[in-house]
Nucleic acid binder design. Structure first.
Lengths: 332, 332
DNA sequence: CTGTTAGCGCATTCAC
DNA sequence: GTGAATGCGCTAACAG
């Protein structure tokens, strides 16, 4: 059991100086002789003194803690995002509360409440399950906030995005270059902003290639393996002549692979398949998946970097969206 | 921008009662009339009052926050573990700092320092990269601590484990039942406690089946795909007649699959393969992987449950290790 | 360069 | 059942 931690006062007493001198020395503030500073710091170390962030937070009204809110930590996308973000936070000596909302808007709301109670300095929100209005309302409660892949703005709110539209455009271009002419799209959930942007990219890509988007080549689905598999079957029955499928993301794409196999189509000989994200197992499935790699960790680092600037009160140059990169493997 | 948050004092003033009455009402403490309590709570709600956990933490010296420390959040094992743990914490209205040490002992040390500064009530540590002594030293700084898959004990320290030995024993039994007679083992990193226990299970399993463990059938490796692949090649060159391989974990097993394919062996016809963990992509590879499923989320929930009991000062019954479950797929 | 005073928002302890 | 003092550990603002 930790024998009662020592306080700044203990250190001051032992050092024979005032409390403020210790405070200044430890925080690297001016107003302490070099001599005094060194000896105080050394003493503090020897005494195992650690400043209380709690007390400091109360006194300064800045806690040096942040929050990250997202729906599912078990999803590698969010896990990697959070890892990137916390890497940056750690370098700035900030701790972060990671709040898992379990895809539940109610829990998301209580997560925000909790973070307010913790008096955090700022928050990063990814894939909120709240309606736009409510989300804006919530993030406005914080001094600063960064939203990932959302277009909600306001004072103290910044955005960090992936250029989904551009990415899918590249994917279409690649397929066309490979001689594919009947390119279908598995579109993901209707409510998702990224799904919307990816669909836009698909349509624009076809138009650029001189083809016209046909509704019968587009199918929505739940973004999991089962959903992808079913969507592939539906598309195939509607358009037996299709020779390529772009999927909402890698999980969906894996489902598509399965659906195609069950219908006796060979990949990529008969049908080419492209996913999005480049999650770790995209390279492991058979055939390995051609996909649009998103630098998720970089996205997380960027988000945290922006949040730190926001917290420091800096003006922000408008962010450019991160561009995904086409990784060509066996499936296309 | 949040227009200066209201404090307990503001609520008291508006309600026309004393500060303490509000405090008692909000915290459900006795000593307030039912009438008063309800009206105060309602008023607080209307004013958007949220108690400051920072101030409360200073006053009570309990922060209602916890910490989790592990090497790599991008590793699904830890992500799922953390998710399970935070699910339980959330239900108890506790927030948790998640500290990613990046496999770096130095960073792990600073993570512990940070958590001490945050004055957290307890900590969960999984897969520490610190030597036993140092780890014990560190966790002893906290009021309560739960160690996952470690056998370090002490006052206020509890353990939560997976019964690796038992699991591998089951795996061996299954292979023997399938008629396999030359069973090899890819053993993972030497420093890992779970690797040690799995190896022990392998040896015990062979003995039970009336065979004797041969050093030439055991190969250590770095637990990633490349490591598994190489280990398989080494084993094969040493023992061309082997007909089964148990791998340290699923990642390693996937490497083994690759190595076998490159050597022209068919799975499972020529060689059966079993992994450990049942990470999500174990079911996705070809052939799909037979593996020992560990209820990772359950492990996380258990760890957090134990931590909460520890924090509440409860006496703990010694924990029973969680048993993995053999999931039979194509590879064995 | 150093020390003193006051207060951050809340809960504990005692009075009433 | 309610309220008034006191302090948690620290820093901001001011004094010397």
């Amino acid at each position: 059991m930790a024998n009662k931690r020592s306080t700044i006062e203990d250190v001051a007493r032992v050092a024979g100086v005032s409390l403020m001198t210790v405070s200044r020395a430890i925080n690297g503030r001016p107003g302490v002789g070099e001599e005094t500073r060194r000896s105080v710091i050394e003493l503090a170390e020897r005494m195992g003194y650690r400043p209380s962030r709690v007390a400091r937070g109360l006194a300064t009204r800045r806690t040096a803690t942040l929050g990250i809110v997202f729906p599912d930590m078990a999803n590698p996308f969010f896990a990697i995002l959070a890892k990137g973000a916390t890497d940056i936070a750690r370098a700035a000596d900030l701790n972060v509360f990671i709040m898992n909302t379990d895809e539940d808007p109610e829990l998301e709301l209580t997560a925000f409440d909790s973070l307010i109670e913790e008096h955090i300095d700022g928050v990063i929100v990814a894939a909120s399950r709240l309606p736009r209005r409510r989300l804006l309302e919530q993030v406005s409660r914080f001094g600063s906030a960064v939203l990932v892949n959302s277009d909600i703005g306001g004072p103290g709110i910044a955005n960090v995005d992936v250029d989904d539209r551009w990415g899918i455009l590249e994917a279409v271009k690649h397929l066309v270059a490979c001689g594919r002419r009947r390119i279908a799209f598995v579109a993901g959930p209707r409510e998702s902003g990224s799904a919307r942007r990816r669909l836009a990219g698909y349509r624009a890509g076809l138009v650029r290639a001189g083809m016209s988007p046909e509704p019968s080549l587009i199918e929505r689905c739940i973004p999991d393996i089962e959903g992808g598999s079913r969507a592939a079957a539906v598309l195939l029955s509607r358009e037996p002549s299709l020779d390529a499928i772009i999927a909402y993301n890698d999980i969906t794409a894996i489902g598509v692979l399965r659906g195609l196999a069950e219908s006796g189509r060979r990949v990529p000989a008969d049908v080419a398949v492209i996913g999005v994200d480049d999650v770790p197992y995209a390279a492991l499935v058979r055939p390995s998946l051609t996909t649009l790699k998103v630098d998720i960790s970089g996205l997380g680092r960027l988000a945290m970097g922006v949040l730190l600037e926001l917290r420091a009160g800096q003006e922000l140059a408008p962010m450019e969206a991160i561009r995904p990169q086409l990784i060509i493997r066996e499936s296309a």
